[in-house]
Design a binder for these strands. Structure first.
Length: 225
DNA sequence: TGCCAGGCCGGGT
DNA sequence: ACCCGGCATGGC
């Protein structure tokens, strides 16, 4: 029954908030870089870092590969954790160049599941970053789970406390029959909508009165986390 | 002013 | 297999 609930949530959110048109990076590579930079970081800070990379002509795999971590760290400073993220960007582009010649089309020639495994093998890329790259950069149907997703679903009693990333991901993916581009669009929009709810209503101290999902609250009332 | 933001790694139990 | 500290800036 959870599947029909999730479909119902999606319909409600889409009707009340509309399409979010999320993550409109200008190129797939820009989206991939953004996926790393936004780890535990507000997107507004990521935008500044990406703008710096662009201004320096360093928003390409080859350029990042050719830039030392110190210099890179200076450029991405606004994104926070800049020393860590500079190394992560470099380890990612190293893999991207070695494995796929820095070519998105070649990357998309691999299957979704093997691509995901490969990405998880890159140091600095965990499940959320991998799925963000797959979904938002490559248009592959891999649902992104994040802290907002967990909080919203948890408060509605749709996942158990302590549910793992993969459990939540599989529950969400299993709830929808769509295929192809429609599936990608749905995963893209639904995740963005869950984030919107998390940001504006389903916060650490929730404001459920005006939440688009208020009619979907479980009988026992929202958890307080 | 402190808390939080679209996580992940490495070392310790 | 979990748990936790560390990593850092900018906005409200």
């Amino acid at each position: 029954m959870t599947s029909s609930e999730l479909r119902s949530y999606y319909k409600t959110l889409l009707n009340s908030l509309g399409p979010q048109h999320w993550w409109p990076g200008e190129t797939p590579f820009e989206v991939m870089v953004g996926a790393v930079l936004t780890q535990n970081t507000a997107w507004t800070n990521v935008e500044k870092a990406i703008a710096n990379l662009k201004a320096a002509g360093t928003l390409s795999a080859k350029a990042i590969d050719a830039t030392d971590a110190r210099t890179l760290a200076r450029m991405i400073r606004p994104a926070g954790y800049f020393n860590v993220k500079a190394k992560r960007l470099k380890s990612f582009v190293r893999w991207y160049l070695d494995r796929y010649g820095g070519d998105v089309k070649r990357m998309k020639a691999s299957s979704l599941s093997s691509l995901r495994e490969e990405l998880l093998g890159v140091k600095g890329i965990g499940p959320e970053t991998a799925d963000s790259i797959l979904l938002y950069a490559l248009d592959l149907p891999s649902f992104v789970v994040d802290a907002y997703t967990y909080r919203v679903l948890r408060r509605h009693g749709l996942v158990l406390e302590g549910a793992t990333y993969d459990e939540i991901k599989e529950m969400l993916e299993g709830a929808f029959d769509e295929t192809g581009a429609a599936r990608v669009r749905l995963f893209n929009e639904f995740h963005a909508l869950l984030v919107a709810v998390g940001k504006d209503w389903c916060k650490p101290t929730p404001r459920c009165e005006t939440c688009p999902l208020r009619e979907h609250l479980p009988r026992s009332g929202p958890e307080t986390l």
